[in-house]
Simulated assay, not measured.
Amino acid sequence: MGEISIKITISDRIYPLKVNMEEEEIVRRAAKMINERIKEYQENYAVRDKQDLLSMAVLHYATGVLKAENKVQAQDTAVADKVGELDSLLTDFFSK
């Protein structure tokens, strides 16, 4: 599908974006999550500077992405190990 123009507000700043129609909801949800995280940090910590709050939110989400990537990589390794075991068992079975 085509691109559409949208405006996203993050930390009281408006960002005009062009996104694929299929991605619009995801982008809006991401902006909402970022704003909620910023608000949470603002309420729970003595940080008032918007740049610091935004940096803390970015660090939170980047850490989450890296954890998810590590988990997927570990799962891929485990699956590859199991496939190797099955291949070995089948090779042994058919070679008898």
Rank of each mutant, 00 (worst) to 15 (best):
28 R>M: 13
63 T>K: 03
60 H>F: 11
17 L>R: 06
34 I>W: 05
19 V>H: 14
11 S>P: 02
69 E>R: 05
94 F>P: 10
87 D>K: 05
50 K>M: 10
27 V>A: 05
56 M>Y: 07
49 D>Q: 15
60 H>C: 13
59 L>M: 12
9 T>D: 12
50 K>W: 02
37 R>H: 09
11 S>M: 13
54 L>D: 00
46 A>S: 13
74 A>I: 01
72 V>P: 00
40 E>Y: 02
38 I>K: 00
18 K>T: 12
25 E>L: 09
82 K>N: 07
47 V>L: 15
10 I>L: 10
11 S>W: 09
21 M>V: 06
37 R>T: 03
67 K>R: 03
60 H>I: 10
72 V>W: 07
69 E>Y: 10
51 Q>S: 05
13 R>H: 09
10 I>Q: 14
28 R>F: 14
37 R>C: 12
79 V>E: 15
32 K>Q: 11
34 I>G: 01
74 A>C: 03
83 V>L: 15
68 A>H: 05
37 R>I: 04
71 K>G: 05
71 K>T: 03
48 R>D: 02
39 K>S: 11
28 R>W: 09
39 K>E: 15
36 E>D: 07
93 F>C: 02
31 A>G: 11
86 L>Y: 12
69 E>M: 10
50 K>S: 01
19 V>P: 03
50 K>V: 04
10 I>M: 10
92 D>H: 13
21 M>A: 05
26 I>T: 06
55 S>Q: 07
49 D>R: 15
70 N>V: 06
20 N>S: 10
85 E>M: 03
26 I>P: 01
88 S>N: 11
42 Q>S: 10
83 V>F: 15
24 E>G: 02
27 V>Y: 11
45 Y>L: 10
39 K>C: 09
61 Y>P: 09
25 E>W: 14
90 L>S: 04
61 Y>L: 06
78 A>Y: 12
38 I>W: 03
27 V>D: 07
44 N>F: 08
57 A>T: 01
46 A>N: 08
67 K>N: 10
52 D>K: 13
55 S>C: 07
31 A>C: 13
64 G>V: 13
14 I>P: 05
30 A>P: 00
67 K>C: 06
13 R>D: 09
86 L>H: 07
32 K>W: 15
84 G>Y: 00
84 G>S: 14
55 S>I: 06
93 F>V: 03
52 D>E: 08
39 K>F: 15
41 Y>G: 09
18 K>G: 09
68 A>G: 04
31 A>L: 13
42 Q>D: 15
63 T>E: 04
80 A>N: 14
62 A>N: 07
94 F>V: 05
81 D>W: 13
20 N>R: 08
56 M>V: 00
27 V>E: 11
60 H>M: 13
56 M>C: 02
90 L>K: 03
54 L>C: 00
31 A>D: 07
22 E>C: 08
91 T>A: 12
28 R>T: 07
45 Y>T: 11
94 F>K: 02
32 K>C: 14
30 A>L: 13
63 T>D: 12
35 N>S: 15
68 A>T: 06
81 D>G: 07
52 D>I: 05
90 L>C: 03
86 L>R: 04
86 L>E: 05
